[in-house]
C-alpha cells in the first residue's frame, strides 16, 4: 500500500461540540454545532488543514455517510 500513490490521506480528525448561545441578531440563539478540523496529506507530502462547522441535522447526515461507507467496506 505504501508505494501505491494516493489522492491524499486523512491524518487528523478533530472535533468540538459547542452551543452558540447568542449573536448580534438574537439574544437566544441556543443552537448546538459541531466544528470539525481535518488534516490531509497529499501525494507530495503537503499537509493541508481544513475546518468547517455543522448544525446537528447537517452532522447527522455527515455521520450517516461514514456509516454507509463503513458498512460497504466491511463487506469487501
Amino acid at each position: 500500500m505504501e508505494k501505491a500513490f494516493s489522492i491524499g490521506k486523512l491524518v487528523d480528525f478533530q472535533w468540538k461540540l459547542g452551543v452558540a448561545t447568542s449573536s448580534s441578531l438574537t439574544t437566544q440563539l441556543n443552537t448546538p454545532f459541531i466544528s470539525v478540523f481535518i488534516k490531509v496529506v497529499d501525494a507530495n507530502e503537503q499537509v493541508s488543514s481544513h475546518s468547517f462547522e455543522l448544525t446537528v441535522p447537517e452532522f447527522q447526515n455527515f455521520a450517516q455517510q461514514f456509516k454507509d461507507m463503513s458498512q460497504l467496506m466491511v463487506q469487501l
Binding site: A20, L25, S35
Partner: peptide, 13 residues
Amino acid sequence: EIIYKKTRFNNSL
C-alpha cells in the same frame, strides 16, 4: 435556523 447560519463565520459543508 437561518439566523444561526447567518452568523456561521466558519466554513460549512
